[in-house]
Design a protein around this nucleic acid. Sequence first.
RNA 1: GGAGAGGUGGCCGAGUGGUUGAAGGCGCGCCCCUGCUAAGGGCGUAUAGGUUAACUCUUAUCGAGGGUUCGAAUCCCUCCCUCUCCGCCA
Length: 426
Amino acid sequence: MLDLKRLRTEPETVAELLKKKGHDFDVAAFSALEEKRKALQVDTESLQNERNTKSRNIGNAKAAGEDIAPLLAEVDDLKATLQKKEVELDVIVGELETILHGVPNIPDERVPEGADEESNQEIRTWGKPRSFDFEAKDHIELGEARGGLDFETAVKITGSRFVVMQGEVAKLHRALVQFMLDVHTTEHGYTEVNVPNMVNAESAFGTGQLPKFADDLFELKDDRGFYLIPTAEVPVTNIVRDEIVEADALPMKFACHSPCFRSEAGSYGKDTRGMIRQHQFEKVELVQLVKPEQSKQAHEDLTHHAEVILQKLELPYRVVILCGGDLGFSAELTYDIEVWVPGQDTFREISSCSNFGDFQARRMQARWRNPNTGKPELIHTVNGSGLAVGRTLIAVLENYQNADGSVTVPLALQPYMGGASTILFP
RNA sequence: GGAGAGGUGGCCGAGUGGUUGAAGGCGCGCCCCUGCUAAGGGCGUAUAGGUUAACUCUUAUCGAGGGUUCGAAUCCCUCCCUCUCCGCCA
């Protein structure tokens, strides 16, 4: 959520900045509503003031034992007039809120222009894609061969875009989770957290999934209105919702392993094969809650923390900066980390690291007490995947495959695989 | 699931219809006194808006949302949450 004050004082500037994100902010409509709101609010409040004053007089008169009948007559029609104004004001305020809730965050000046991922800019690469002396298979072929990855059974159990993992593949998946958590908690200073995998609407609003992206979420069909989390970002960031934390509590750094549930609305026909795009996948998420002046550096650090995982696994990757059109609703700046996937002969997103500035904090009312001012001020939120586990599994299987269909276990993972250096599918 | 109690400011805690945005305490900030690692005293200390050049003035907020009333932290209704006991349960 943007600062309403800024939107009021310089709507044209904001509209101009939002163009980079492909958002058309209707300044005329907004300003017209604002005019109405202002007039109505002044009217309403002066009526409220009148009511308060007269009510106080009635109280005083009553206490003094005077006749209050004439005073009551005075306020007779005040109530109805006031109620009418209040309803009108509520409607206008509601309309303004709807607009405000739908306005995306303003992109950082470093964000390149562009409509879609074609305009994303590569900022660095690491490692060299391996050249195979045999025909490299993709993870589907590797995994299905002997049942390590079983998509058909998952279709029976649930439906498309799910997978059943078995044997060494399931173990490798688990090993990746443990490995990532260990690196982040012991080497990067994150605190491990385990959080609810369902959230209420307030939390989903706080991080920006609601109200605009309800279709991307799985909503539980029960009158409590819970949602399955699309990422641990939602519950973890909301730890500080409606809180005022002391300055020395910041930065807070959390690492969280969780399943992620996405309806993938609008992605029909994309990545339908394999486990690139699933309705359920697991992820180790990194979240940092920081003072405003720390967020830019925290974002760089966090991205690096995610990269370290790929470096330790010796998987080639590149980092791209997302252009305006590809940038998410709540983010001001996002780096995507893309891992080399031999089966597709391309880089695929495995992590998305974003700085949200105060955008999520304002929605959540997450604040810290600034000792310099003594006042509560909004914090900044930063997060990123460290990493998406399913996609990391794909990358390991495909990059480490051998001609005989076995897969070499990356050195860093061997302690988590009982020392095994190679796996065969079941 | 059943029975009961309760949700008030950064924290604790008064307050059952009329200057209560809210006593008192703690914490915090500034100052004074004391001159020694103690204590005492004074003042200040919620949030979000509107209005104003500013001072001022003003509105809302006592879990959330409705209602009654000239007037609601206080009365009524619905919901959420916490605690205690019982039941159930991985």
